[in-house]
């Protein structure tokens, strides 16, 4: 499998094909962190009036970095890149690590923390104050947009995803294979 270069038309086309194929074949609710789940989340954000209003002054990309946890199929860190601009969500993609690390704001944490956030058991701001999530980027800008950030989290929770640690051993292996193949093809 040839590695495609992120940012090219070829990469984007192949990524979209993967999403389309998986949305057609995978049962809902989707598994958190998979391309089909990310696409579902992207659509929610793009169509959410509350987010648009709260984020009307926002500029810059936000990256959710989920640290690797091999026992649930996450062999490498996963980077979910959100290209956000003045209330618009241009796209959300799983991206290669070097692209993820170059985001304007990178929020990283263990899988369990993100699971708690997406299950609405843990508030993002509280998690940052407790050091459970770490922010790389300009803190004052995030604070100015605290309502928009909260809305993004609410929307992720509203997808009610299946979580990798709740999958059967066979499903975990399927997830591992999906992510391994995606790494080989997309560098993600």
């Amino acid at each position: 499998m040839a590695l495609l270069t992120y940012g090219t038309e070829e990469w984007e086309k192949a990524y979209q094909e993967l999403v389309k194929e998986r949305q057609a074949t995978q049962p809902k609710p989707y598994i958190m962190g998979t391309p089909e789940w990310v696409a579902q989340y992207e659509e929610l954000v793009q169509n959410d009036a509350e987010y648009k209003e709260a984020a009307k002054d926002w500029e810059g990309s936000v990256v959710i970095k989920i640290l690797a946890k091999p026992e649930i199929g996450l062999d490498s860190d996963l980077y979910m890149f959100m290209d956000l601009w003045h209330g618009d969500c241009r796209f959300i993609r799983i991206v290669p690590p070097e692209v993820g690390e170059s985001g304007d704001y990178v929020i990283s944490g263990e899988y369990e923390r993100w699971k708690s956030v997406m299950a609405k058991e843990l508030d993002t701001v509280k998690a940052m104050m407790q050091g459970k999530l770490k922010l790389k980027g300009d803190l004052p800008s995030i604070v100015r947009a605290v309502k928009a950030a909260s809305r993004l989290v609410d929307l992720s929770a509203s997808t009610e995803p299946r979580f990798p640690d709740e999958l059967s051993p066979e499903e975990i292996e399927d997830l591992r294979k999906l992510l391994r193949d995606a790494k080989e093809k997309f560098g993600i």
């Binding site: 508030d123 701001v125 509280k126 940052m128 104050m129 004052p140 604070v143 100015r144 605290v146 909260s150």
Partner: peptide, 11 residues
């Protein structure tokens, strides 16, 4: 106060 309100004070 709660953590979100605390940051909102800065706004």
């Amino acid at each position: 106060t709660d953590s979100t309100t605390l940051l909102e004070l800065a706004n």
